[in-house]
Amino acid sequence: MRAGHGEHHLIHRVGWLRAAVLGANDGIISTASLIVGVAASPGASAQTVLLAGIASLVGGALSMAAGEYVSVSSQADTENADLAREAAELARAPEAETAELAAIYVARGVEPALAGQVAQQMMTHDALGAHRRDELGLADEGGANPVLAALASAAAFATGAIVPVAVAAIVPRETAVAAVFVAAVLMLAILGAIGARAGGSPVVRAVLRVTILGCAAMALTGLLGRVSGVLI
């Protein structure tokens, strides 16, 4: 291998890319769907439509933040509990833990004698770190920060949700349904293309997937809003 040779792997983007795309995509679809549903009701005023959009933006962003905080915190608690249990096992039975590590390497294709040597060296260098990576499958850098994850999730949702809200605030009441629908589809297509390019996946497939699902959500919500408005 040449000196200075480096490889660039897209898999390292999966964590933040998934969170960003999921948050923005949710912000666009949920807020646009709510606006379309309310605007499709014959009795809804322009103020009501805009208020619904703002409520969706604020409530959705806070909900995403709370959900992400709880999720990441729960994951961190589980990881810490496993690490504490592993540290106790290392202190109680280091030989058994060395054999366990060697067995992992053998299962991955390393010859038994060499696997035993590698396991012994890894135990000497950083026993808990070796078991963290190879037995528990946890990254060396640890899990995400719950607070940062919550803020990032809320920001991603708000970034997506602000588009349909801004459109609803600008266009006349009579064209709100069509304008928000079109703006949301365009933003979903752009978001799908950006996510696909960043993740190295086919752009057309990603765009079609997110736009079709978004159109279905907005159409169904609009139909329900129309029917509910007529019945009420």
Rank of each mutant, 00 (worst) to 15 (best):
G192M: 08
P202W: 03
S30V: 07
T124P: 00
A20V: 12
V49K: 03
V38R: 10
V204G: 14
H12L: 10
A102V: 06
V118K: 04
A19F: 10
R205F: 04
D134L: 08
L17Y: 04
G143L: 05
E86S: 02
R2W: 12
G109D: 01
A183W: 01
H12C: 12
S41D: 10
G59V: 08
Q47V: 12
A176I: 05
M218V: 06
E135C: 10
V165I: 03
E111D: 12
L10D: 15
L22D: 07
H5G: 10
P202C: 06
N145K: 10
G142D: 15
V70R: 10
G15K: 13
T159W: 01
L223S: 08
G195L: 10
D126Y: 09
A176R: 00
R13Y: 14
S73K: 14
L138T: 15
V118F: 14
L62M: 15
A149V: 05
L10C: 14
G195C: 07
A20T: 15
P164W: 01
Q117I: 09
L128I: 11
V227C: 13
R173G: 04
H125C: 04
R85E: 12
Q121E: 13
L191F: 03
V21W: 04
V177K: 00
S228M: 14
L50D: 02
S33T: 01
E95S: 11
G116T: 08
L50A: 09
E95M: 06
R226N: 08
N145V: 04
E79C: 06
G67I: 01
R85M: 14
A44Y: 09
Q47S: 13
V14K: 15
I28K: 00
L51F: 14
L50G: 03
G160W: 01
A216H: 04
A40L: 11
A61W: 00
P112L: 03
F157Q: 05
A40F: 14
L114D: 02
S33K: 00
T175L: 10
S228I: 15
I190D: 03
D77H: 10
G37S: 05
